Structures are given as structure tokens and as C-alpha cells.
Computed example of a mutant assay.
Amino acid sequence: MNSKKRILILATGGTIASAPTNDGLAPRYGISQILGANSLLHNYYDLTMRDILQLDSSNIQIPEWQLIARAIYEERNNFAGIVVTHGTDTMAYTSSALAYMLRNINLPVVLTGSQFPVDVPLSDAHDNLQTALAMAASGVPGVFLAFNRQVILGTRAAKVRTLDFQAFESINCPPLAKINSAGLCFNQQVLQSVQKLRQANEPCTLRLELLPAAFLLKLTPAFNPELLDCLPGLGYKAVLLEAFGIGGINFLHANMLERIEKLLRSHIAVVVTSQCLYEQSSLKVYEVGRKLLDLGAIEAFDMVTEAAVTKLYYILGQAAKLNLTGSERLNFVRSCFRRNLAGEINLPPI
């Protein structure tokens, strides 16, 4: 009797699949070359491997997210877990998007990749695959990112290093699990929060509707707020503003508040987060933040930027599906941003 867990690996390209070309590294290897027939991992898992894309992750955007999500959804009842190999540059965006699109997923979906191509002697590819496969076989449903012997919630990951093997960190939430000499060891508090998100009696639903009508703006001193006047004409329905510190913006000299008020009157959602990677934003602390709240700005609290951007794409897509426009769409965005959909947010204590 075969007791090995059935795991599906979906390959999409990335550094893990790359080889040198005249123009630099580019994806060239399929998953059967990354994880050859002689790999010891076949002794522990019943592996099915498929190449569904062969792209640098900089080229993976909404159509590719939809393709990946559909492939996962179609196979969700045929395997114990699914691993997706992916380039590191946009992996955190993809993991967040998949977490929103695959609502109430019934098995572990684990993204991984590497900082070095698989055929480099010191590559981290095999180590990351081992971690991803262990998580895929764990039976814990959800979307996760596995890297450097850690497993991170898909909506809590951010790429923070370009060269180091610790490329990703779990932001404002401890890693779900770590690999050590005791095996795959879970943080029980994070595990319980993941389990609470899943509705046990509800089926998984695939929600492919994403609308990329959200503009990300990192505020800088002396920024010209007139730029915001261009956004409605370009079709944007929301702005994610990376404000200073805990949530400050300038209202002397070039007054941002006037332009933000104008956007909100046009029913364009303005979501405010912090430029700081760790801890939360709060618009209640300083005068500059309270002025934003008074205008009707929406707080992102402790969300990582990648999760906030993709959440806006997701919410705007659902609003379009419901034919919501104007104030109805704005209120829908406001309501959804206060809800924890996939582990992306903890409502703040301050």
C-alpha cells in the first residue's frame, strides 16, 4: 500500500528554472529537469509535475495569476497538496493574489523558488523545494510561501533581500512554520489563526475577477499633488498611499489633503498605509492622520504593501462583478478593507 502523499508541482519559470543566455539569465528548464527522476524526494512523495508557464516572474501579472489559480482549483480534490515554483521578484504578489482568489481552499498551496538557478552547485533550490513539499504534505489548507526553511502566510510575505537566501520575511506575523532538526515545526498561535479563517463546511470558490485599477503612490517630501488629478482620467478607482511613519502626509506648502478630498468626492478610494515595513499604520495618532480620517480615507493597518495592492485588485474586481459604481463601490472597498479575508490583517489595538 502506497502511503506517500500525492503532491502536484506546477512550474511557472523564475530563477529556479533559469540558465545563462546571451542576454542574461532566463527561464529555460522544465520541472522534470529541476526535480529529476533520480531525486530522493520521489522516495517520500508521489509527485506529479507540470509546466504551465516559463516566465521571469517580472512578467507574471493578472492573466498569469488567473491561469495559476484555475490550474490549482481544477486539481484541488486530486492531490494532498500543490507546490507552485515561481520567480522571487513577484512571488509575494502572486501568493497574496492566490490567497484572495482561492477562497476557502481545501489543501495546502505552497509557492517557492530560489535565489540561484537549480544547476548552480550552491543553489538553494532543492532546500526550498524540500520545505515546500513538507508543507504541501502537512494537510494545513491555505496559500503559503516557503523559503529558506520557513513557511510564511501568503498574504504576509515580502521580498526584502536581492542576494541573500533569506529573501523573504513574514511581516507583522511570525512565520507559520520553520524547519529544524525536529522537522516541520508550526507556530501554534499562527496555525490557529489560519484554521479560524477556513469555513469547514463551505466549498472552495474560485474568484478570478481582478481589476488592476489601483495606483500605488509612495509619498516623498516635496511631492507634487497635482499628479493625483490625472488618476481619474486614467481609469483608476483606488489609490494606495504609502504615507510617512504611522500615517502622516503633508498639508503645508503643497497640500495633499485638497487633492485627496477631490479623489474621494469622485468616489475613488484612498487607502493609507505606512512606508515602514514593520508594525502598523494608525491615522488616529497625529493631526496629519486625523485629517485624512475626517476626509474618509481608509486605513490599511498592518497589511504588507503586496497584500494591500492585490486586495484592492480583488475588491475592485468583485465590485465590478456586482456592477457597483460611485459611492456604492467606495463603501464596498471600505467595508472589505476592514475584514480579514486571508490572514492579511489584524485590526489594530490603537
Rank of each mutant, 00 (worst) to 15 (best):
E169K: 12
F147G: 05
R161W: 06
R149Y: 10
K178N: 12
G154A: 07
A137R: 08
L163K: 10
G142W: 05
G139K: 06
Q166C: 14
S170Q: 07
C173V: 13
P175F: 12
F168E: 01
G154D: 04
M135G: 03
L145D: 00
A158D: 04
M135Y: 12
R149G: 07
A137W: 08
R161I: 03
Q150L: 11
I179G: 03
V143H: 02
R156G: 03
V160G: 00
G154F: 10
R161G: 00
G139T: 05
T155R: 14
A137L: 11
F165N: 09
K159I: 01
P175D: 03
T155L: 15
G142C: 08
A177K: 07
V140H: 07
A157K: 05
G154H: 09
E169F: 03
N148Y: 13
R156E: 04
F165K: 13
A137M: 12
T155N: 07
A177R: 07
V143G: 00
R156H: 06
P174K: 13
V143P: 01
A167R: 04
A177M: 08
Q166E: 15
L163N: 09
I171W: 08
V160F: 08
T162P: 00
G142Q: 08
V143M: 04
K159W: 04
A177H: 04
E169D: 11
V140I: 15
Q150M: 13
A167I: 05
Q166V: 12
N148T: 05
I171M: 13
F147C: 12
V140T: 11
L176F: 09
M135N: 06
A136H: 10
R149M: 14
R161Q: 08
P174A: 12
G142T: 07
G142P: 00
L145C: 03
I179E: 03
L176K: 10
A146L: 11
S170T: 01
I179S: 02
A136C: 06
K178S: 13
A157D: 05
P175H: 05
P174L: 13
L176Q: 06
F144I: 11
P141L: 14
K178M: 15
A157W: 06
R156W: 10
F147K: 09
G139Q: 07
F165Q: 07
P174D: 06
Q150E: 14
A158Q: 15
S170E: 01
K178Q: 15
V160T: 12
F168N: 03
V160A: 03
P175N: 09
V160C: 03
V140P: 00
I152W: 09
D164R: 10
K159A: 06
G154K: 11
V151Q: 08
I171F: 09
P174T: 01
V143S: 00
R156T: 04
L153F: 04
K159C: 02
R161K: 11
A137E: 02
I152P: 01
R149H: 15
M135I: 12
V151E: 07
A137I: 09
A157Y: 10
V160L: 14
F144C: 08
L153C: 14
I171R: 09
I171E: 02
N172I: 11
K159G: 01
C173S: 13
D164P: 00
R156K: 08
T162I: 11
R161Y: 11
